[in-house]
Design a protein around this nucleic acid. Sequence first.
DNA 1: ACCGCAGTAAAAA
DNA 2: GTATTTTTTTACTGCGGT
Length: 632
Amino acid sequence: MEKSETTSSGENPRPWHSYHTVYTNAKAGMEGVDKEKVQRIVYEMSKGSKYFENEEKKEAYMRQKIETMRAQCAKLTAADVSHYQMVADKRIVELETTRDLSRIWLHVDMDAFYAAVETLSNPSLTGKPMAVGSMSMISTANYEARKFGVRAAMPGFIARKLCPELIFVPTDFNKYTHYSNLTRKVFQKYDPHFMAASLDEAYLDITDVCKERGVTGGEVADELRTRVYEETGLTCSAGVAPNRLLAKIGGIGKVTEHMLRDVLGINTCEEMLQKGGFLCALFSRSSADFFLSVGLGLGGTDTPEVKFRKSISNERTFSATDDEALLYQKLADIAQMLCTDMQKEGLRGRTLTLKLKTASFEVRSRAVTLQKYICSGEEILKYASKLLKAELPISLRLIGLRMSHFNEDKAGAPSDPTQRTLTKFVLSRDASGKTMGGQSSLSSNCSDEAFMDDLETSFPNDEIRDPWDSSCKQDLEDHNCTFGNNIEAEEAHESLSNNTAENIAETSLPRKLGGGSTDMVNEEVILHNEAVISPDWQYQCFKADDYKCSLCGIEMPPDFVEERQEHSDFHLAERLQEKESSINSRTSIERHRFAQKAITSSRSSRKKHKPSPKQGSHLSIDMYFVKSNQNF
DNA sequence: ACCGCAGTAAAAA
DNA sequence: GTATTTTTTTACTGCGGT
């Protein structure tokens, strides 16, 4: 494991070969692109910048990782190799037994989604190279632009160099959400429980449709794509397979690809299995399992019941500054934005993570876990400020805040006195009785396994099913648990679909929606959506800026957010006791917890702070190298 | 030895 | 002339408490 001298010699005739970015990789519609030229221009536009320097650091880190892994590999004795091969073969057999070929999955991906939507609302863009995004970053490029090597995730100023006549269109998420909803209405007809992966991607279990109508997956795919086109004027691609992985193979990115190829010489699924022993020797159990599954072509075939959001975050890039007042202002802005987002979903969280990107593009994060769930802008800012303060002085180009640790997180954490669960439990119960604006409840209300587990100890963790649970599930699937999305991407699965997007486009189907009137339709849909999502279910006895509890008249200032919440919870507990005589035991347990909670939460904070900043808690990249070397 | 937490990284859209 | 995003999830590692 000595020597790391494998690097290139002094003068490199083609230095751009050593600079690899995601956005120099080919995408759909980039077949004839002069890759050499694109790489050279990307390199020349990038070199010397802070960003570039950081990329070099990351590259160096990756090379080190690969060296380390090579050394590990070389250290394996013949006995080790045969041992791990046996382990791998056994694992392969085990995994094989999980194969399920009984389902038919469809992965649908809109073609150049944002760009296509923009063209729909401004047909004069048709046929011209165009990108959605800014000079800083491109979200999507249309196919005309891709011929120049312009791609999602590429900075706009580089794209303009590659294609000087490139037209830039700013992102307009309202528009994309509107069209996304139209596509989802179609998806729903084929699979009411379809899984949205982003605004422009979804997985559909079309097994039942195929069976009932006696058609193949491919035929359903064709029909669905036609219907999507009819409803939206947008084209899409679809992959058909017995599981989701095969309908869209993913999960191996730049770094993993290098580790597999450069260390183990793995390029294909077959090689993944042949070299299974090395995978088991070098990677963790879960990573090795994943790789072997990919090699076997195994993937998810189930439709997981409600998936819960685990975190919510907001971040902004700005021109780098070390002006503390300015940084605090940015932080306050982010805190407010996060608070707004959390309110939309009625979330409260315990763990707050501050994300920083320094002027040199180094990314750091700092987190606190509180005893209490918080959601107000003031409180978020209060704790975020403490986290930021510990990093000063510092020059930053990005600040972000993330809230997580929402509720129970892990079912079966009996010691954790999660006071929010009471509120959510009650609210969820109520939601089954009355409907709010046609929809009953929110994702975060739908399951509270820790609570259930605590109080209804006879339920196994995984099998909590009752009527309101499934009604929640239905609700959620209406919203499809879609999370953030910015950069749209077409993937290799296009090769799996027989009919290309272009074929469909050429069939001259009528355009149902032209440009022009879309914005009004938009508004309507968005408003509808917000009505569904907005947390007007909150049973707060306080109005937003009221000092008095409407139920008992006790006075508390609005900024006593935790105290007010607890007070609300108290009334909820009472209410629960009245309404639910059959679950008296639970109530008393919960009230007991509630009382405890009130005590523990008043002791302010466990301030045993991290050694934190400069050369304290986090290592420089160089230091990290030393460290990881010592591990082997 | 195990658990929870903090920090970093990778991946995806 | 300048300029390299945003959001979420998952995995792994190391530390400190019990």
